[in-house]
C-alpha cells in the first residue's frame, strides 16, 4: 500500500465570480474538483485515490459566503464556514438545531475553514473506500464492508444497496429536519432541491451522495421559517468528542402547542447513506406531550426495519435511545 501524503500535480483555479466558477465547472466537468475548505478534498488527493486534473477554489467568491435573513427564512452561502454557522446569532436565535450540529463537526480548525457546502457534499468515510479499494462505490464490483467478516461497525443499518456506507455529515440531518432546500447553479441555470431529495442513496447513484451533477455548484442553503424557534434537539454520539464522525446522530425539530407536539421532524445521521427521516416516530408522537410516557411509547420505532451488519447492531439501540432522549430533554 503506497502511502502518500503529498498531493499530486494538479491545476488550481481561483475564480472570484460565480459565473467564472460555473464556466470552469462546466468546462472541466469530471476533470475538475470544486474546492470549499478542502478538508475532505486534501485527504483524497494526498492519498491519490481520486485524481482530478484541476481544483476550482470557490473561496474567493464573496457572493457565496455569508448568512442573511430573507422574507421566508434564512439563506446561507455555500462557502460559509462551519464556525460562522455555529456562532451566527441569527442561526443561534431561531435555528439552533443547525448551530448545535455545526459545532460538533470535526475540530475547531476544521470548522474554521470547512464550509457548509463541503460538509454536505463530502464523500462517505467507509474506510475500505478511503483506502482506495475498488469497491462498488469506487466503480468496482464488490463491497468489502457488507460481508460476514467485514469490519463494518461504522456502516449502515438501513438502505443497503450494494454499498453500506453512511452519511458522514453532522449538518445534513439538521438541515433535513429544518426542511431546508439547496440552491444549485450551473451554466444552464438554477434549480432548488429540498434537502430531503438532495441526498441520494446507492440505490439511486452509487458513485455520489447528492444529486449534484458535474458542472453544478451548490451556491446556497435556504432554511424556511417553518421551524423557526421550534423545540430542537441535536445529539451526536461518536467515540471521541473531537474529530470523530458520528456513530449515530439525531436532529429533531418539534413544533409544540397546547402542551403537545403538533408536528415534528426526527432525522438520524450515520444510519444509512442519507440522513434518515424517522417518519414512524414523527407519526407516533404527533399530538402527544413530550416526556417520559411519549418517549417510552415510541419503543423501537426508530430502528424498525433495520438490517444490521455483523458489527453494527448497536446502532439500532442507539438510534432508538436518541429518539427517546429528544422527547425527554
Amino acid at each position: 500500500m503506497p502511502s502518500h501524503d503529498v498531493m499530486p500535480d494538479i491545476e488550481l483555479y481561483q475564480p472570484v465570480q460565480v459565473e467564472d466558477a460555473l464556466d470552469l465547472a462546466s468546462r472541466l466537468a469530471e476533470r475538475g474538483w470544486l474546492l470549499g475548505g478542502g478538508q475532505d478534498t486534501y485527504g483524497w488527493l494526498k492519498d491519490r485515490n481520486k485524481s482530478p486534473e484541476a481544483m476550482i477554489d470557490l473561496n474567493g467568491i464573496e457572493a457565496l459566503r455569508g448568512i442573511r435573513e430573507t422574507a421566508s427564512g434564512l439563506e446561507i452561502g455555500a462557502l460559509t464556514t462551519l464556525t460562522e454557522v455555529a456562532t451566527n446569532p441569527l442561526i443561534q436565535a431561531s435555528y439552533s438545531l443547525l448551530s448545535d450540529a455545526a459545532v460538533k463537526v470535526a475540530s475547531p480548525q476544521i470548522r474554521n475553514v470547512g464550509t457548509v457546502g463541503g460538509n454536505l457534499v463530502q464523500d462517505v468515510r467507509c474506510w475500505y473506500y478511503r483506502r482506495g479499494l475498488s469497491c462498488y462505490r469506487a466503480g468496482g464490483n464488490l463491497c468489502y464492508a457488507d460481508t460476514p467478516q467485514g469490519m463494518n461497525r461504522e456502516h449502515a443499518i438501513f438502505g443497503a444497496s450494494r454499498c453500506v456506507a453512511v452519511t458522514p455529515s453532522d449538518t445534513a440531518p439538521a438541515l433535513v429536519a429544518l426542511d431546508a432546500s439547496m440552491v444549485i447553479r450551473s451554466t444552464s441555470g438554477e434549480r432548488v432541491v429540498p434537502a430531503a431529495d438532495f441526498f441520494v442513496g446507492p440505490n439511486v447513484d452509487i458513485r455520489h451522495t447528492t444529486v449534484l451533477q458535474p458542472g453544478e455548484i451548490l451556491t446556497a442553503v435556504r432554511i424556511p421559517n417553518t421551524w423557526a424557534n421550534a423545540t430542537f434537539y441535536f445529539e451526536k454520539v461518536a467515540d471521541r468528542n473531537v474529530w470523530d464522525f458520528a456513530l449515530v446522530s439525531i436532529a429533531v425539530a418539534m413544533r409544540e402547542s397546547g402542551g403537545v407536539i403538533q408536528d415534528s421532524r426526527f432525522v438520524a445521521g450515520a444510519v444509512q447513506c442519507t440522513p434518515r427521516r424517522l417518519e414512524a416516530v414523527e407519526a407516533a408522537v404527533r399530538g402527544k406531550a413530550r416526556g417520559e410516557a411519549t418517549a417510552m411509547s415510541i419503543g423501537t420505532l426508530a430502528s424498525n426495519g433495520a438490517e444490521p451488519l455483523t458489527h453494527n447492531g448497536f446502532k439500532m439501540h442507539l438510534v432508538d435511545n436518541l429518539a427517546k432522549r429528544a422527547l425527554l430533554a
Partner: peptide, 16 residues
C-alpha cells in the same frame, strides 16, 4: 480486516 489483512485505523482519527 480478516478478509484481506488490511488495517482500518492507520490515521490518528481512526486510532483515536
Amino acid at each position: 480486516d480478516p478478509q484481506n489483512g488490511l488495517p482500518a485505523n492507520v490515521g490518528l482519527y481512526q486510532s483515536k
